[in-house]
């Protein structure tokens, strides 16, 4: 059976790893190359690398850092943040990304998902969805969580699946950085509505949160950042814990 994946996320700004709460109040967490290789040693299944300010400032991802990070890794690396055109996607992949994550540009130009998945294969195209609950609905946000759209999360997830996305990286803005647990309701709704892999993100604070996620939702991977950067959770211990509870992981 395919193993549930544990994915540390490196939010990168100006070549350094940073982490905030609910997408703001950023603090320095270290060097991306060092952290990525430490996480591979500790048993990380993949690394996600997000240039978090790229969308806002219209900046291109820092491809040199991608190259340096990719050259020390022998697990997959996903790169996102500010990828707006087919050329950006192509450049990220040729710099050493195995997959790219597209968020804002996917919402603003749906053709980009179709064209990128046709050219590079669905398996390389991750669509990131940042979700926030507004009244009784979950709505899609773009531009690093600063811009609200009128798209409902579940219907957008189905749309991107139809356009050829290979995976969905689903982040709860409400839970991001709170360490209060994943947004189970949101994650369950999305993972039950599509037949492509879903990566849950936002809210991990405790080993129990990962077990809760994998035992209730049909998701394929759990992504977290702060708990790993701060050493609150060690990946090897997390995977041992999950395995003892009957969740299939790669150890």
């Amino acid at each position: 059976m395919i193993a549930k994946r544990i994915i540390p996320c490196l939010d990168v700004r100006d070549g350094r790893v940073v982490k905030g709460v609910r997408f703001t109040d950023l603090k320095d967490k270290g060097d991306p190359v060092e952290l990525a290789s430490r996480y591979e040693d500790e048993g990380a299944d993949e690394i996600v690398f997000l240039d978090i300010t790229a969308s806002i400032e219209g900046r291109r991802t820092l491809f040199e850092v991608v190259k340096n990070t990719a050259s020390v890794l022998s697990i997959p690396l996903t790169v996102g943040g500010g990828l707006r055109t087919l050329n950006d996607v192509s450049y990220a992949l040729s710099s050493g990304a195995d997959k790219v994550s597209i968020n804002t540009a996917a919402v603003e130009d749906e053709k980009l998902i179709r064209n990128a998945s046709t050219e590079f294969g669905s398996q390389s195209i991750v669509v990131a969805i940042d979700a926030k609950r507004i009244a009784d609905k979950y709505l899609v946000y773009t531009r690093s969580g600063t811009y609200i759209t009128d798209l409902e999360v579940v219907s957008w997830a189905k749309t991107v699946e139809g356009l050829g996305a290979g995976e969905i990286l689903l982040t709860s803005i409400d839970m991001d950085g709170t360490r209060l647990g994943y947004d189970i309701e949101l994650t369950k709704a999305v993972s039950e509505s599509v037949k492509i892999p879903v990566i849950a993100s936002g809210g991990a604070g405790d080993l129990r949160h990962f077990y809760e996620l994998f035992s209730i939702c049909n998701v394929d991977a759990a992504l977290a950042a702060g708990v790993f950067h701060d050493g609150i959770i060690r990946i090897y211990e997390l995977k041992t814990y999950l395995k003892n509870l009957g969740i299939e992981v790669r150890l």
């Binding site: 990719a70 050259s71 890794l73 992949l93 040729s94 195995d98 390389s124």
Partner: peptide, 11 residues
């Protein structure tokens, strides 16, 4: 002409 050939070259 397409995609990530960096990883296999590094490996």
């Amino acid at each position: 002409g397409v995609g990530n050939i960096f990883s296999i070259a590094s490996a």
